[in-house]
């Protein structure tokens, strides 16, 4: 694990202030294109999930935000969270605990719940709301993840500069657009000759390529904050034990800048009130807007699938989603 975290120290790139300045300029330009059309009190928040979601399909991204907002303000008993989300919150808490103290008590779930509560995250209710089978499965997975964490997380040298769940903000367009992220763990600081920051994410499930996109996003916002890119990003998937790393160099910073700038343009345009543009993508078959989406239907047909039967609610969704005439500025 320590080798995975360090990578090859001899290969760490030198600070490249030119590429960082170019990245910021590119992102500022993306935000500025629509900033004046965004209502005065609105701040557009750009997270790793928003970048991926809005680039996949703007219409579905908005529909998912709508669904989350509806659930948040629904009266009565809240809907149970998916077990994977509850597991993720618990494992995040344990990872922070292990990175801080190297220890977990006899009951890892109890430790994780107590840590979340101390941090103002009421995870206990979400855990209790799971069905008995799911609850036991989450308990087993969290316990296994805890054992892996304790057994594998290395003792870092004193003065390593460990920060857990450190919030990062990058303000664009005078604060109208905000890139935000909170990596699980950040270690080190930039130094005179070489990049010196490592970003580490622990995932409670199995590895997915999207995790590498998350690392690239974190690498970019860390680079913009410090003025120097991190040297490496590591994702540790506790579900399957994989450790994957991305080496951060100027090429990665620039390619990620272009990806995020594209998302910033889309999000700022939506925030300004422009209609969302649907995009066919591999997730179309599970999209709530599918029944009224010609692009999605074509995508499903190309993949050899059939359109699901449209129910009344689906039709309503479609009417909302695809009264969405594509416009351009």
């Amino acid at each position: 694990m320590l080798r995975a975290l360090r990578g090859d120290p001899a290969c760490r790139p030198a600070p490249d202030p030119v590429i960082i300045a170019a990245a910021r300029a590119r992102l500022e330009a993306a935000a500025a294109a629509w900033a004046e059309a965004i209502p005065a009190e609105v701040v557009v928040r750009v997270t790793k999930d928003a970048v991926a979601g809005v680039r996949r399909c703007e219409a579905r991204h908005l529909a998912e935000l709508e669904g989350k907002a509806d659930r948040a303000r629904a009266e009565g008993e809240p809907e149970p969270e998916p077990p994977a989300l509850v597991r993720g919150r618990l494992v995040d808490a344990l990872f922070r605990q292990v990175a801080t103290t190297s220890r977990v008590g006899d009951d890892p779930v109890a430790d994780a719940v107590a840590a979340c509560e101390a941090d103002g995250d009421p995870v206990e209710a979400a855990f209790a709301a799971l069905g008995p089978v799911e609850r036991e499965q989450v308990r087993a997975e969290v316990t296994a993840a805890s054992a892996t964490l304790v057994a594998s997380w290395p003792a870092l040298p004193a003065g390593a500069g460990v920060r857990t769940q450190e919030r990062v903000l990058v303000a664009l367009a005078g604060g109208r657009v905000l890139l935000t992220g909170r990596p699980d763990l950040t270690i080190g600081r930039p130094t005179r000759r070489r990049a010196g920051v490592l970003v580490c994410e622990a995932k409670s499930g199995s590895f997915r390529p999207a995790h590498l996109e998350e690392l690239r996003f974190y690498a970019l916002i860390e680079a913009l904050r410090w003025g120097v890119a991190p040297f490496r990003g590591v994702v540790w998937s506790l579900g399957d034990g994989r450790i994957e790393a991305v080496e951060v160099d100027s090429d990665l910073v620039w390619s990620e800048t272009l990806r995020v700038a594209d998302a910033v343009t889309r999000l700022a345009r939506l925030a300004a009130g422009e209609a969302p543009r649907p995009s066919a993508n591999p997730l179309c078959p599970s999209c709530p807007l599918l029944s009224g989406c010609s692009d999605g239907a074509r995508q499903v047909a190309l993949a050899g699938g059939a359109l699901p039967e449209a129910d009344e609610e689906g039709d309503d969704d479609a009417a909302v989603g695809f009264d969405l005439v594509e416009t351009s500025r």
Binding site: G159, G188, R189, T191
Partner: peptide, 16 residues
């Protein structure tokens, strides 16, 4: 302060 591997102990450049 050192990074994870104690390699660097030099001052930050001014732009940092």
């Amino acid at each position: 302060p050192p990074g994870p591997d104690h390699l660097e102990r030099r001052a930050l450049p001014a732009h940092l």
